[in-house]
Design a binder for these strands. Structure first.
Length: 400
DNA sequence: ATAGGGTTAG
């Protein structure tokens, strides 16, 4: 990419062009190449990376989950005398928060604030979203209130992130209250907020309020989208009102939205809940053969879980095989469902086999896995297998 | 040229 390579034409990329390329590489998951390009730029063009260069790379490594690497870049940046800005801060905060390091993020924020770098509304959106995602909505609310005190007025997205968080926490009264405050501040809800509100109200069985919100949405000139329809289909089918659900489905299709994996997932789940596994399997078969909708882990998990609970572990195991043949990765939930099913049958050999598969797939056990296996395997005196299972993870996580 | 919010399982 150095200008010297271009015979005959005087093309010397400037720093902005380099940064654009580095950002592009990072955005498609090639952050390592982005990093190399920065080094090459230094050597061949003599440009020193600036704040933007570092910000792009830090974001690339954060999005790839390589927080340590991002932090190294942040240190290197400061060592080189390149001044971090609020974008650097926000990028790091978002990376840390999304990878479970909320308290590290708060520490960084405090440290940067001491150095005189103030957060902006994006900083607050990041923090509010992550506190909500770790079920600390109260902290999110207090951050929101803190914001105005710091004479930083919330923009639409700050309101929206709080509304979403409140909906996810099932705190619908608070969510509606914040939504009306947002409206007073000139930020009417958008389709994402409306969908969250409608979904939250449905989950709390407040169908009248959900209906009213749907009307508010239409009055605001916002049309229902695929999410809205999926939300309603999920509500009606889970209430056993399959006729209504199918009517909504028809309207969805008439409106130009093809059912997607979520639509099918909602129906499959509801038929499973209603004890109609046959109908659920029929939809599943139809999905595989008559639609282009790719099946995902969630779909298989619903069915595997239901089969295990209906004393059809063999069918669940064969579905696991189908899943793997189709290249759909089982996750912890898949294995947990299977272990519970196998425990019911006390089918130990099969459980051992599945445990080995889980380790091979570097799928991490969670507390449910450990609870089920610890209880079951110690009851039957198979603690040795349990120990080697756990050790398998200690090895794989240290080499990962 | 760089940063922020969405649906299905357990």
């Amino acid at each position: 990419m150095g200008g010297s390579e271009c015979d005959g034409i005087l093309v010397k990329p400037d720093l902005v062009l380099y940064n654009t390329l580095i950002d592009g590489l990072c955005k498609v998951g090639k952050q390592e190449e982005g990093f190399k390009l920065m080094e090459k730029m230094r050597l061949e063009s003599g440009y020193e990376p600036n704040t933007v260069t570092y910000n792009c790379l830090i974001d690339g490594f954060c999005k790839a989950g390589e927080i340590e690497r991002s932090y190294e870049l942040f240190d290197q940046m400061k060592k080189d005398g390149v001044v971090p800005n609020v974008i650097t801060l926000n990028t790091l905060l978002d990376g840390m928060c999304k990878h479970g390091r909320v308290s590290t993020a708060m520490g960084l924020l405090a440290e940067m604030q001491e150095k005189g770098l103030k957060g902006n509304s994006i900083t607050y959106t990041i923090l509010i979203t992550s506190f909500c995602s770790v079920n600390n909505v109260d902290r999110a609310m207090s951050l929101f209130n803190e914001m105005s005190e710091n004479r930083c007025s919330p923009d639409a997205k700050v309101y929206y992130s709080l509304i979403l968080g409140l909906c996810q926490a099932r705190r619908m009264d608070d969510a509606l209250c914040v939504a009306s405050k947002a409206k007073e501040a000139g930020f009417g809800s958008d389709i994402i907020c409306f969908n969250a509100l409608i979904g939250g109200l449905c989950r709390k069985n407040k169908i009248d309020e959900a209906h009213k919100t749907l009307k508010d949405m239409e009055e605001a000139g916002i049309k229902p989208d695929r999410h809205t329809y999926n939300t309603l289909i999920s509500y009606f089918s889970e209430k056993g009102q399959f006729e209504t659900a199918h009517r909504v489905l028809k309207r969805m299709i008439d409106d130009g939205y093809f059912p997607n994996v979520v639509t099918y997932g909602a129906l499959i789940h509801a038929y499973c809940l209603a004890g109609n596994v046959d109908e659920a399997m029929k939809i599943f078969q139809n999905m595989s053969s008559a639609t282009n909708v790719p099946l995902n882990t969630v779909i298989y998990n619903i069915l595997i879980d239901t089969l295990c609970k209906s004393d059809k572990v063999e069918d669940a195991i064969s579905l696991l095989g189908v899943m793997k043949d189709k290249g759909v990765r089982p996750n912890t939930t898949t294995y947990n469902a299977l272990f519970k099913g196998l425990q019911e049958r006390n089918w130990v050999e099969k459980a051992f086999e599945i445990m080995d598969q889980m380790t091979e797939n570097t799928c991490n056990p969670d507390y449910i896995t450990m609870e089920v296996l610890t209880q079951w395997l110690s009851d039957i005196g198979e603690t040795e297998k349990l120990r080697s299972f756990v050790e398998g993870y200690e090895v794989s996580t240290s080499t990962a």
